[in-house]
Design a protein around this nucleic acid. Structure first.
Length: 758
DNA sequence: AACCGCTCGATTTTT
DNA sequence: TCGAGCGGTT
């Protein structure tokens, strides 16, 4: 008779069970795509709790995103019930580090109510410093320096630790000085940025062994999700917090490390065994997601990478469709192909029942590639949702509203002041604001205090003084109100009194959305009884539960697709320079190329049943026509897992022999300039390649069906285009014409071609 | 102080 | 293509 397993383990495979049961000592779980990683983590927590090895708050479980943390909590709850609520230390790196920092803020010169800056504040602060230091802001932008600071902080580098050459040369060798000045300003403002949350933690934990000791006693078990994405400071933080029992379990997949550009170190996972001698390595290789051909194609591709621990995924889903590779003439043809294929699948085919729209996703390398698909979807009226798009809390109106609240919560928040003092326009211009800032700096007080003092004197011209007096009067009324009114009531009052609502209502370009967004902000505040709690939530959880888009096609970047899966996945734009991205390779050479390849791997492995890769011969990029050559990744796909068709002539050349063409042309995988790559039909010997003559605009190979009046299927105010900073809104429907407004610029676009699908 | 029109440049993005 | 940022004008 087989041993009866306790409930918790039923349905787990041998490796998964081992990963759950190996509770003592360091463990690295190498969890390939679709191998049940979250299940292992949640079951492991349940197991630790069930065995009485630790109480809920003695488990430290860190993730990267709030979404992952939320999912982990919910799924653990299903396994252990109410005791999951005691898992106070399940959260993102940043939220847990913030908790710790608030407890010991005084040790790094902050007060425990410090504010957390968003990147907008960060840039504004740097701008001030640049002006003070006389930095040429055309040559050196505050934005690029903000990036540099983030990079330093990701590496755990404080100003004193930077050696020459690591960006120190910024602004004419002023990098370190500017960084130091920035840190000093943060301390004066009682603020820190995201990087500081961890950096200050490191400072506290290394300099105060007694405090470290309390955390060692507290955190009996540590679990880490997506370990391949940890940066140096997160890595150091984990090392510090791991006590001598070393009950550390890191779960990750080196083949899915795609965040190197923001500081993630694949090395962390590669050297786990060296860091924690005697560590157990458990490989999860049984894939529950994809068919054999999809896994085969992905495996063939990732094989080309050198720095990997190595896994071989397998599945019981034998057979299935081969990965489709399509060569197309241009971007419009590609969008047309994808949209028509989706319609075909939506209707149902001989082999498959109808697919829901939401079963299909398009994964692109960069967001500018989305436009062509959106245009086609609007034309065909295929419902689509852009996943990831502009973030709610990053929208200008939301930031403005929050800045008002921040200023009320802590009047010393100079950055909040600067943001809203002339929004809506009060006649307080740049010159006045600069004067106020300077005055405050000289007196060593906050801007609010400086203003309060200044309006008692006659130092300001009446033109600037009058609106300031008015503002201060409003402000003190809000301050009083904040003491007993509900946060959402306060928000409403502030936005009404300040004229902010009026300003937005008067703005014709934005339609209703901005006001709707503000309403949504008010609703989300209702869940918090205290303004401080709400603001903390806003800065750390820059994410609002959004509706899932219903039955619509999903359109997103490859990065946004990590962790998701779809029955059908389209992977367009597999062309050299686009994917792999030229810019990425210019910056990081071979290392970046391997990361791009991992991105391709992530893309393919999102598919459950069908993956469709496409490339084009000609593509418009930012309005310019360019000739494209197929991505080297296409050639790395094993022939036996692929079915190739083409409308460009490329296929007949035999796409699988492309690698040898690269070799003959002396084409190095780590070339640094576009110019070094061979041109189509130029250095390459392949006869068929010449059919793709580099030409100006090609004629579309197929015209869309004649337009019929079907604009009526759209609603006023509907969002149809997703720009980098906002949306396109339907502001008018005139017969068969849609007038779309771009929210930020106010520019108009007319869409007058529709295809009737009835 | 506020607005207009021109030039330039352009991955990936969480907290 | 869009939008940000700048400099010149009202």
């Amino acid at each position: 008779m087989a041993a009866v397993k306790p409930d918790l383990f039923t349905g787990l495979n041998t490796e998964q069970e081992a990963a759950v049961r190996t509770v003592q000592g360091p463990v690295l779980v190498l969890a390939g795509a679709g191998t049940g990683k979250t299940r292992v983590l949640t079951t492991r927590i349940a197991h630790i709790l069930g065995q009485g090895l630790a109480r809920p708050w003695e488990i430290l479980c860190v993730t990267f995103t709030n979404k992952a943390a939320r999912e982990m909590r919910e799924r653990t709850q299903k396994l252990v019930g109410a005791s999951a609520e005691g898992l106070q230390n399940l959260g993102t790196f940043h939220s847990i580090a913030a908790q710790i920092l608030r407890r010991h803020a005084d040790l790094v010169g902050l007060k425990s109510n410090f504010t957390i800056l968003d990147d907008d504040d960060q840039v504004r602060l740097l701008k001030g410093i640049f002006e003070q230091e006389g930095i040429d802001q055309k040559r050196y932008t505050p934005k690029s320096f903000a990036w540099q600071i983030d990079q330093w902080k990701n590496k755990g580098l404080t100003p004193d630790k930077i050696k020459g050459g690591e960006g120190a040369e910024f602004g004419g060798n002023k990098g370190i000085k500017l960084y130091q000045a920035y840190q000093d300003r943060l301390r004066i403002l009682n603020a820190c940025d995201f990087g500081d949350l961890l950096l200050h933690n490191l400072d506290i934990l290394t300099k105060h062994p007694d405090i470290l000791e309390t955390y060692h006693r507290k955190f009996k078990y540590i679990l880490v999700d997506e370990y391949q994405d940890t940066n140096v400071s997160q890595y150091l933080w984990l090392r510090l917090l791991t006590n001598t029992d070393r009950n550390l379990c890191c779960v990750g997949d080196d083949d899915q490390s795609i965040y190197g550009w923001r500081g993630a170190e694949v090395d962390n996972i590669l050297k786990f065994e060296r860091d924690y001698p005697g560590a157990k390595i458990i490989r999860l290789e049984r894939n529950y997601r994809s068919t054999e051909h999809i896994l085969g194609a992905a495996a063939g591709l990732i094989k080309a990478n050198t720095a990997r621990l190595g896994k071989t995924l397998f599945t019981d889903e034998k057979g299935g469709d081969k990965v489709q590779v399509q060569g197309l003439w241009d971007g419009a043809a590609e969008a047309q192909f994808v949209a028509e294929d989706m319609e075909r699948l939506h209707k149902g085919t001989r082999d498959n029942d109808p697919r829901k729209w939401s079963d299909m996703a398009i994964l692109v390398r960069a967001s500018f590639q989305m436009r062509a698909f959106e245009e086609r979807f609007v034309m065909l009226q295929i419902p689509y949702t852009v996943v990831g798009g502009p973030r709610f809390f990053e929208r200008a109106e939301i930031r403005d509203a929050i800045a008002y609240l921040r200023l009320i919560q802590s009047p010393d928040d100079d950055l909040a002041f600067e943001r809203i003092i002339n929004v809506p326009k009060r006649g307080i211009g740049d010159a006045t604001v600069q004067k106020l800032l300077q005055q405050a700096r000289l007196a060593g007080v906050s801007v609010m205090t400086a203003v309060r003092d200044l309006i008692q004197t006659d130092e300001l011209p009446a033109r600037a003084k009058t609106p300031l007096v008015g503002f201060m009067r409003d402000f003190s009324r809000w301050l009083d109100l904040s003491k007993d009114a509900q946060a959402s009531v306060l928000l409403d009052t502030v936005l009404t009194d300040s004229g902010y609502f009026d300003m937005q209502r008067a703005d014709k370009t934005s339609g209703q959305t901005r006001l709707d967004n503000l309403k949504e902000l008010g609703n989300s505040m209702a869940a918090f009884d205290d303004l401080a709690a709400f603001l903390e939530h806003v800065s750390l959880v820059m994410d609002l539960e959004r509706d899932n888009g219903g039955d619509s096609v999903r359109l997103m970047t490859l990065h946004a697709a990590k962790g998701l899966e779809f029955p059908v996945v389209y992977l367009p734009g597999w062309e050299e320079g686009i994917f792999p991205s030229q810019r990425s390779m210019d910056e990081g050479g071979l290392k970046s190329l391997e990361e791009e390849r991992r991105l391709a791997y992530v893309g393919i492995t999102r598919a459950r049943q069908e993956a469709k890769i496409s490339f084009v011969a000609n593509r418009q990029v930012y309005g310019r026509w360019t000739n494209q050559i197929p991505s080297r990744f296409v050639d790395e796909l094993p022939i036996e897992n692929v079915e190739a068709t083409s409308q460009t002539g490329y296929q007949s050349a035999g796409w699988q022999s492309q690698q040898s063409r690269w070799d003959r042309a002396g084409y190095e995988p780590n070339y640094t300039k576009k110019a070094e790559a061979p041109a189509y039909g130029g250095d390459l010997a392949g006869v068929d390649m010449r059919r793709l003559e580099p030409k100006a605009r090609p004629t579309p190979h197929r015209q869309p069906a004649p337009a019929k009046p079907s604009a009526k299927n759209f609603k006023l105010g509907e969002r149809v285009f997703h720009m980098k900073f906002g949306y396109g809104l339907i502001v008018e429907i005139e017969g068969n014409k849609l007038i779309v407004n771009f929210e930020t610029s106010g520019d108009k676009k007319v869409i007058d071609s529709f295809v009737d699908r009835a």
